[in-house]
Nucleic acid binder design. Sequence first.
RNA 1: GCCCGGGUGGUGAAAUUGGUAGACACAAGGGACUUAAAAUCCCUCGGAGAUAAUACUCCGUGCCGGUUCGAGUCCGGCCCCGGGCACCA
Length: 813
Amino acid sequence: MSYNHKSIESKWQKFWLENQTFRSEDVSSSKPKYYVLDMFPYPSGAGLHVGHALGYVATDIVARYKRMKGFNVLHPMGWDAFGLPAEQYAIKTGTHPKVTTQQNVENFKKQINSLGFSYDWSREINTTDPGYYKWTQWIFMQLFNKGLAFEQEVAVNWCPELKAVLANEEVVNGKSDIGGHPVIRLPMKQWILKITDYAESLLDGLDDLDWPENIKELQKNWIGRSEGVELGFEIDGSNDLINVYTTRPDTLFGASYMVLAPEHTLIHSLVSDKQREEVESYIEETKKKSDFDRTEINKDKTGVFTGSYAINPFTRKKIEIWIADYVLISYGTGAIMAVPGHDERDWDFASKYNLPIVEVVEGGDVSKAAFTAKGNAKIINSSNDKTLSLDGLNVDQAIKEAIIYIEKNSIGKATVNYKLRDWLFSRQRYWGEPFPLIHKDDKVELIPEEDLPVMLPEVKNYKPSDDGKSPLSLINNWVEVKDENSNIIGLRETNTMPQWAGSCWYFLRFTDPNNTNEAWSKENENYWMPVDLYIGGQEHAVLHLLYSRFWHHVLYDLGLVSTKEPFKKLYNQGMILGDDGTKMSKSRGNVINPEEIMDEYGADSMRLYEMFMGPLNKSKPWSTKGLQGCYRFINKLWSIISDDEGFLSSKISNDVEPDKETLFLHHQTIKKLGEDIESLHFNTAVSQLMIYCNHLQKCDSIPKDLIEDLSIIICPFVPHLSEEFWSLLGHSDSITYESWPDYDENLIELDEVTIAVQVNGKLRANISVAKDSIEKDVVSKALTLENVEKFTSDGSIVKTIYIANRLLNFVVK
RNA sequence: GCCCGGGUGGUGAAAUUGGUAGACACAAGGGACUUAAAAUCCCUCGGAGAUAAUACUCCGUGCCGGUUCGAGUCCGGCCCCGGGCACCA
């Protein structure tokens, strides 16, 4: 009987579901734990993508392998189901997002199961389930109580098309990340989470994580720590000080003008009457610009003079105070000292407006361009005759000296700044978690904990109002909170949380998903956390991974979780491109539908091929031909183990002795598969399986115990086939919890090794010698070879390099 | 512009600490089986030269140089591709 993936795969998928094969023990004292997690998906209407499958296959292989290695494995799946698409669909069709979500979840789940993944479905979670978002709201309460949540009138990214406020991270080049619609700035009252309080903690935590270096780098850059000085400049004719932040106090002698951001509060008091009109119209202009307009590069810098002067604290000279929108109110103090000689932006501005450029670091030509070298570059023109001279010092030394002087003379103090901004945490949407908050007069209060969850009410209209208020604000009987006498005692917060909220802690809920008394029990959390392996796409490098780390750090500080960092090891799967080498997209018509692939070739072939394509973390093009190769391989495996009638092949028996080569390959394969799975090198693991099976195919007889081992070690990759083999071998249980076989190191070592013989580093011959032969024996044998003699006879051997069991090299002169 | 990745056959890719470059597959070509096709099996497969020979020689891991007995691997400079950030003072 030939291999029939349809009957085999549906049979075992049914078996696994009926027997709850993959259900993990809650807390096991006898087994060590292993928590392997996928980034849970948003269940979109488009269904599962071959790219989703890539990461899921990888984690499934690890999960199945670890079970065989004796671990109690937590391998759960759930749904990040709040989000814009379902809401947009609701606006268009009136279908409740709950309905859409449920349909999509069912479809996703069906597709996921058809790939033979070993998820523990008893732990399935859905972020839109009130039993889940109750606890999302509860965590918000903890953040609120810790003073990390506050309300603020801020200029937000308003997208008129989506009728929604977007986070900075959801705006790309002035357009919405979803849909690519224009985004403008609009002031609105918003909830903000003080992630900046955790900037240092989030930066520190990165050091010990087993994460890809580039992801750590991205987070570091995003947090953007810089060390510098905050110092005050006196204003000529005023008692106010202008505070600036600089990382280059060594260049203070070159500070030849100042710039304030147009939003700076001091502007109105220091602008001169003569300049007032010009300044005010500039400020008005700036207000109209979007962030994108303001930060777009290659844009000409603009600004206006305020008519006032500041005093450079080092030179005591008067310098002009300007306003310009190239200075951002949101970073540092919103004002800068400009050093055009050594800062490109200041140089551009000074050149345009003919402001003085002073050279204080030697080595460039400041009349042509800013000279920005640091480190060993020498400071010049930097003494004030009295108490300070930086001349002759290099930049690094001068920074230290300048800081000492600044602090001693109470001009300012050393400070650390971060690029990281606070997290805009409210959205004007329906389909999100409501906040557990009530507005009473001017105050905001948390609702009592026992009133959780704040249920999302039914609405008729999913559209936000035109002024950007959430659709919830239109439901008076929900918004108004009344006492027993029907008096209105407060109004509910009508914004909802962003989609990130649910995914910030779902990995904690998986440890105790059905707990109705608390978000998670201490015992379960303590046993399962941290996540040992977390696999997902690189697109979440900063957002999801930074936000969830932030919440986790807070929960850790509150004593609610046992580890500071939630994800010990992180790995990113690469993208699967279309067969034309470009990104899969409907418009290019190069999208591969996993359902069609599985229908024709089966889930095992699909799994095996996705792992064989190349390194997990690399992008690589899809090839249906390549997939067919894996399908052929699976058929080959089938033909080794099964005969024409579908019974165990007569070649396999207990009464055969394996030959040396078979044993060698067998043990080598067990070893390599184990090592490759541990290091996530699945492509080379598949190669090794192919090498072994190519050999087995040629054998006339194979010992049964080798086939038993083989069935076990293929299980992580092709679980359906593995189960089928196991049952052919006469077992009635699932193969899932069989022990991963041990290998015998002695059998992998050969007694005869091939040694490369080189002359001056060029290969001239190969010889076969006994393992661990001593140099003398190998040399004498090598010298008898004709081709070696040919190249050594021209000169004399001046040196011999011998690497045992590998190589012999004669250096001839 | 800055910060990360990455450039190896026709293609996807292998290659422990520097130690026989191209494992394993795909495609291609040839052969066997078959009335035929599919499926399957066997052989060839980086380039050039040479040969009776699958003896052998030279070149070859983006480019140029260096270190070394020996470099895909280490060092310096450059080119190209992918990703991220982008006036953060």
